[in-house]
Design a protein around this nucleic acid. Structure first.
Lengths: 151, 151
DNA sequence: TACTTATTGAGAATAATCCTTATTAAGGGA
DNA sequence: TCCCTTAATAAGGATTATTCTCAATAAGTA
């Protein structure tokens, strides 16, 4: 859950025999400049880059998102929409969690520092190296509770 | 997060104009009899039922799993294997969470009552009706930390 | 018992993600 | 600085989980 720059990303990649490419640098920057609370799907990112005139292929996007999630740079979010979303992985006080309505997918972010502490302690106890820790609350929002629509 | 019997499931379904079918009853029983900590994917369940000589179509399985998750009977787990897993949703002291190795998918369950409390409080504060609350820790297990295999 | 309509089963359709392959280019060493 | 090795990219095809469609069936209710 470190804060990455192009330089530190390059260092960490090279250490493992991997390479820093313009594509990886671009994608890191996109996520770093995303306003807090925003997150992108693979296709969102693809379209965003197309619009910016610096297209990157979908294959590369998928590979890079997975790579960065496994390095702990990005968080992989499952927000009940049938595809994954990604956001930069930051420590407290930016670290947050999600409350999701399973009917309309409305999502609220909330912060609670004790969650990350619990996650850190649990991973440590088992000898795991922590990448990310998230609490997901599945619920029904006030509007959908009132609605008579099925499920 | 209530404990369901065929009777209470029927009552809750009928209340909404829905029906209790033998398929739904069977699937509920399968999950209720699953040893604690076990979870099934849609295909696991399909194969299990085939093996028991009481086959249920894949369509029905997918529909039922989603229905029961949205009723709060089942928990939908995203355990990093590319498809969802389901388990019965139980209150404390059975309620638990998952620590997952993103490389080998090894998963450890852990309990921590304060997590469910936090989830309950957060949902309540926003007026949401809680269905499930889970903490997911993505990490690298000791074995994979030692291995030199990529990502 | 009959009627309405929710539910099932079967297979087709969809959508997200991954894989394959030729081509390109990053990083390390001479 | 220039090579050389090989990781990474782009493009499109392949895969796989999940959803949809529709005719047939059966649960719940009057």
């Amino acid at each position: 859950m470190a804060v990455y720059t192009s330089t530190s990303l390059k260092a960490e990649l090279n250490e493992r025999g991997w390479r820093l490419t313009p594509q990886r640098e671009t994608i890191l920057q996109i996520f770093q400049n995303l306003p807090e609370g925003n997150h992108l799907s693979a296709e969102d990112l693809y379209n965003l880059l197309q619009g910016q005139g610096q297209p990157i292929s979908l294959s590369t996007i998928y590979r890079t998102l997975k790579l960065m999630a496994r390095m702990g740079i990005l968080r992989e979010l499952e927000l009940a929409e049938g595809h994954k979303h990604y956001e930069i992985n930051q420590p407290a006080p930016h670290h947050h969690h999600h409350l999701i309505c399973v009917r309309c997918n409305k999502t609220i972010e909330f912060k609670n520092d004790s969650i990350l502490k619990t996650g850190t302690k649990t991973a440590q106890k088992e000898g795991y190296h922590l990448l990310d820790c998230q609490m997901i609350i599945h619920a029904i929002c006030p509007t959908c509770q009132r609605s008579l629509l099925p499920i």
